[in-house]
Simulated scan of single mutants.
Amino acid sequence: MTAESNADPAAVPNLRGMAGGTWTILIVLLLLLAATLLIAVVGWSLASGTDVPASGYVALAIGVIFSLAVGFGLMGLVFYSSRKGYDEPPVLLPPETPGGN
């Protein structure tokens, strides 16, 4: 038996039961993907024979390094806050009584 045969039938997506809005979103996203790929191919073919100066490569390297540093830093903060318990839901403390009890 496979894991799919043991799955809850309600959890398995049914393509025939998808609403019209779901199909619309799916079609729009696929059209956007196709348009992006078309623009990438046209842009790549139009840029043949052009040279990138050394300053362009330096800017590209700095951008990649900066983006990686931000990504690593944010992921580190996510793991740090998860391990230290900062992601736990807040707990309501009872009000203190005037007698110090």
Rank of each mutant, 00 (worst) to 15 (best):
residue 26 L to H: 02
residue 45 S to E: 13
residue 13 P to D: 02
residue 58 V to I: 10
residue 48 S to Q: 15
residue 45 S to V: 15
residue 41 V to W: 08
residue 26 L to Y: 01
residue 55 S to I: 10
residue 43 G to Y: 03
residue 20 G to N: 10
residue 40 A to V: 14
residue 57 Y to W: 10
residue 48 S to G: 15
residue 7 A to R: 12
residue 36 T to G: 15
residue 23 W to G: 01
residue 43 G to D: 09
residue 24 T to A: 12
residue 19 A to M: 10
residue 16 R to F: 09
residue 22 T to L: 11
residue 19 A to F: 07
residue 63 G to M: 06
residue 49 G to N: 02
residue 6 N to F: 06
residue 28 V to D: 02
residue 60 L to T: 14
residue 37 L to I: 12
residue 37 L to N: 11
residue 41 V to Q: 09
residue 67 S to M: 07
residue 21 G to P: 01
residue 43 G to C: 05
residue 47 A to L: 11
residue 47 A to W: 05
residue 45 S to F: 11
residue 31 L to G: 00
residue 67 S to G: 10
residue 20 G to P: 04
residue 65 I to N: 05
residue 53 P to Q: 06
residue 42 V to I: 13
residue 7 A to V: 08
residue 57 Y to Q: 11
residue 17 G to F: 06
residue 58 V to H: 06
residue 7 A to Q: 13
residue 33 L to G: 07
residue 21 G to C: 01
residue 65 I to L: 09
residue 42 V to E: 09
residue 50 T to W: 06
residue 43 G to H: 04
residue 33 L to Y: 08
residue 13 P to Q: 03
residue 68 L to K: 07
residue 38 L to R: 15
residue 58 V to Q: 10
residue 57 Y to N: 11
residue 5 S to T: 15
residue 12 V to M: 05
residue 59 A to H: 11
residue 30 L to K: 00
residue 50 T to R: 10
residue 64 V to D: 08
residue 46 L to D: 09
residue 39 I to S: 04
residue 25 I to A: 00
residue 68 L to Q: 12
residue 54 A to K: 13
residue 49 G to D: 01
residue 41 V to Y: 07
residue 18 M to E: 14
residue 60 L to A: 15
residue 31 L to D: 00
residue 54 A to I: 13
residue 58 V to L: 08
residue 66 F to P: 01
residue 34 A to I: 04
residue 65 I to F: 07
residue 24 T to R: 08
residue 65 I to Q: 05
residue 49 G to F: 03
residue 13 P to I: 04
residue 13 P to H: 03
residue 28 V to W: 00
residue 29 L to K: 06
residue 40 A to M: 13
residue 59 A to R: 14
residue 55 S to Y: 07
residue 59 A to T: 14
residue 25 I to M: 01
residue 33 L to N: 08
residue 56 G to F: 01
residue 40 A to T: 15
residue 21 G to D: 02
residue 15 L to F: 14
residue 42 V to M: 10
residue 38 L to K: 12
residue 54 A to D: 15
residue 55 S to R: 09
residue 59 A to G: 14
residue 61 A to K: 10
residue 20 G to L: 12
residue 49 G to R: 03
residue 64 V to I: 14
residue 50 T to N: 08
residue 53 P to C: 06
residue 12 V to S: 06
residue 30 L to F: 00
residue 58 V to F: 06
residue 17 G to I: 05
residue 41 V to P: 04
residue 20 G to T: 09
residue 58 V to P: 04
residue 62 I to Q: 14
residue 23 W to D: 01
residue 35 A to N: 03
residue 31 L to E: 00
residue 30 L to H: 01
